[in-house]
């Protein structure tokens, strides 16, 4: 249920400009409406994308949150890898890391055979 609450908060944040404004001005009050563990609350407060990824936040929700935080694309991918390195495999959901942490693209080599690609 707790992951559900994390994702529901991010769902509201991603699609509602008023919630986005409150995120920057009064996050404590905003989060009080959701039943969150201390770990989840901390991850949301710190914008810890790696931890949120490991907790199991759906990628379509997390990706938009990362964009809201201004996290550059390749940094976002790396933060998720780092999250797995620090906290272990993804605990829930369908967005598990399946490539062993390999990079399948990069800004400077986006069109060549990616390392670890299974093709």
């Amino acid at each position: 249920m707790s992951l559900y609450q994390v994702q529901k908060f991010l769902y509201h944040l991603n699609r509602d400009d008023k919630v986005k404004a409150a995120y920057h001005s009064d996050l404590v009050t905003l989060l009080a409406d959701y039943e969150l563990t201390q770990e989840e609350q901390h991850a949301l407060t710190e914008g810890d994308v790696g931890k949120l990824y490991v907790i199991g936040v759906n990628g379509q929700i997390l990706m938009h949150f990362a964009a809201l935080l201004g996290i550059e694309w390749f940094d976002y991918l790396e933060r998720m890898r780092e999250g797995v390195r620090q906290h272990g495999p993804v605990r829930d959901g369908v967005y598990a890391m399946t490539g062993g942490g390999a990079s399948f693209t990069s800004s400077s080599n986006n069109n060549s055979k990616p390392t670890g690609a299974h093709q």
């Binding site: 379509q60 967005y95 890391m97 399946t98 490539g99 399948f104 990616p114 093709q119």
Partner: peptide, 14 residues
């Protein structure tokens, strides 16, 4: 595709 995961860019062309 494996969007919004660290595996983004992985594609099973076959």
């Amino acid at each position: 595709h494996w969007p919004a995961t660290p595996d983004s860019g992985k594609i099973n062309e076959a």
